[in-house]
Design a protein around this nucleic acid. Sequence first.
DNA 1: TTTGTTTAATTAACGCTGTTAAGTATTTTT
DNA 2: AAAAATACTTAACAGCGTTAATTAAACAAA
Lengths: 210, 210
Amino acid sequence: MGIAERKEKHQLEIKKRILEASMKLFVEEGFEHVTIRKIADLIEYSPTTVYLYFKDKNEIFFHIHEMGFAKFLELNQNLATIANPLIRLYKMGENYIYFGLNNPEYYDVMFIQRAPMETLKQLNVCDWSLGETAIGALRALLQECMDKGLIKQSPIEAVVMAVWGMVHGLISLAIRERLDTIVPKEDLSKVMHQSLNWLLGTIDATLVES
Amino acid sequence: MGIAERKEKHQLEIKKRILEASMKLFVEEGFEHVTIRKIADLIEYSPTTVYLYFKDKNEIFFHIHEMGFAKFLELNQNLATIANPLIRLYKMGENYIYFGLNNPEYYDVMFIQRAPMETLKQLNVCDWSLGETAIGALRALLQECMDKGLIKQSPIEAVVMAVWGMVHGLISLAIRERLDTIVPKEDLSKVMHQSLNWLLGTIDATLVES
DNA sequence: TTTGTTTAATTAACGCTGTTAAGTATTTTT
DNA sequence: AAAAATACTTAACAGCGTTAATTAAACAAA
């Protein structure tokens, strides 16, 4: 079935081109400038052709949201070399903040926009594996720290949600312009790191209480 | 100038009717079903008339966002009777969570949607007074607790941002469907309270360390 | 090779959206 | 009574996501 295979290859090729065009628009012009018609223009097809390869616009954003997670995972490669789990925890938080502040559009589609979740619901995929993997990594790391006595014994789930919640909260407030008049733009990173360090400091068992 | 006054009254009346119609649509059908044409239908004017009273759609959402803050402030009346600032702090956090989970559409337009902030920028209003007032109340309360030795001495700004960030983070993750597959809907409130209580517990100077 | 059938892509259109320009009455002022 | 300002509407622009119907191309079977 060499012919059928070639056909399938070709279809995947077009799917790839649609996603590449979408990514180009997304990266260069931002979320709300990604339109079916502009994608079609870029790949030199008619707008309706896009619908032969993707169910709807949400599905395209689902793939962009996947790319975002890939980028985030790549950034987190720098954790692998850190032996001390507590230092790794601090660094993971730093990575999260860094990623959010330097890739706000990606962060937005990964954690704020509704579009990718719509696809998840529609496909009846009953778990958000990308998100769960990320949060799972945080949970495992916190558990490791706790097991090794590096952080105080605490209800793990509460701490996981508190840490994730805090960093996500600050980043999403910044991205959606709720900190513009409260924290000068150039201080954003500093303020977030202070909050993160303070939070982790409160559970850090290796710090001497002053 | 009785005639000019009457005219002005009439204009304010129509402005009010537009906002009432907008609120009706917002409350009954949600953010994205508030359209200029539907508003116009409700008040029985043509769509263009709306633009005689409001610069654009963002300005209408700015007012809805104000209504949200009013509703939130009203909810926080229950804090006034609490003498102990530490208990007031716990209760303030509870209120925030309660408001977010029970008024997700309001919360969305207050803290997530870009629309109201656009109006702020356009009008060259250089501070988001509603947001700053809310965060100011949290800051003052934390300061009071610290002054009275009810919570541990900590860098106040870091703690303010950490607390606000955490509750906002969890609520916005829930509203934008990032917790759907991680926390069962019926457990959402419980989980958030656990995280809040854990966080406040770590700075609570009145708790005995176990 | 010609016919029939499947596949791929297109054109045209639907029903929306926010917004603006131009026009029409109505009322007020001169 | 004529001119000017006010309030509102009609019509339209320029876009959007999406679907139905249609054409052109590639393939299969006769």
